[in-house]
Design a protein around this nucleic acid. Structure first.
Lengths: 128, 128
DNA sequence: AAATAAAATGAGAATCATTCCTGATGTTGC
DNA sequence: GCAACATCAGGAATGATTCTCATTTTATTT
């Protein structure tokens, strides 16, 4: 449990590292027919604790998971519901803000909402 | 539905504006015995669309809701699970980052995780 | 104000992501 | 190889949120 990743855990991590996008637990389960659903959830939890992956709570029904890489913002289009990665790291600012109150900030997530470029174009077209 | 807030909606908003903290839908339902649960959820959704309140997806079981005021960061202590408001507004940075890709950023939320000041002190005490 | 139309409510059922439970299976140290 | 232990798969349970629909409230018209 400490540092050791099981075969199933490695499979889960592999899926997330290959597909370089956010996946739901359900999508990962579907991609790994030989791994039980409960095990996928347990592996995701463990991998998150180990810092290998990140769990994204974007207000969708289910959580998304992604392979841990450079920190970035998650932009959710309120029209097409698509989740788009946008380079934007505010970890430093957030850490300092927390430190002012004596907290130790380990993890910072930025979630944004609005209209994506494609939907802006789409809406403009429809209005004419 | 447009701009108009029902009596029940106003009650929900009142609870959130009085208690200047994050509340779960369930806690709001409990504070309003005469308002049905489904109506509380509907009102929360409407008030969020209108920008009067914000929905917080912090990875806890249930979502939190708060009265909309100055934008700030939500710090979740990984030990005591407490949610702490920290002054830290990165809306401008996030909006510019999104604009680089043509997206229109309307809403920005920062969620941080780590150890709160109280838990840092607690852990230090326990180690001695 | 009465009559009609339209929208919002409440109670409970349905949904569905996630967690829990249990027996089975695999792994490790000896 | 075997006992001791951890991990697994599958299914059941949980619990937040959403849906349904009969009823009530609110708005509109006359």
């Amino acid at each position: 449990m400490n540092g050791k990743i099981s075969r199933q855990g490695r499979q889960v991590l592999a899926v997330l590292s290959e597909q370089r996008i956010h996946l739901t637990a359900e999508e990962i389960v579907r991609r790994l027919p030989d791994v039980g659903q409960a095990t996928v959830y347990r592996s995701l939890e463990q991998l998150e604790r180990m810092g290998q992956i990140r769990k994204l709570n974007l207000g969708q029904r289910s959580a998304y998971y992604e392979y841990a890489r450079e920190n970035h913002m998650h932009f959710v289009c309120e029209r097409c519901r698509q989740v788009i990665d946008v380079a934007c790291d505010v970890t430093g600012v957030a850490r300092e803000a927390g430190a002012l109150f004596g907290h130790r900030v380990d993890r910072v997530g930025v979630t944004a909402g609005g209209l994506c470029a494609a939907c802006i174009a789409q809406e403009k077209k429809e209005q004419q």
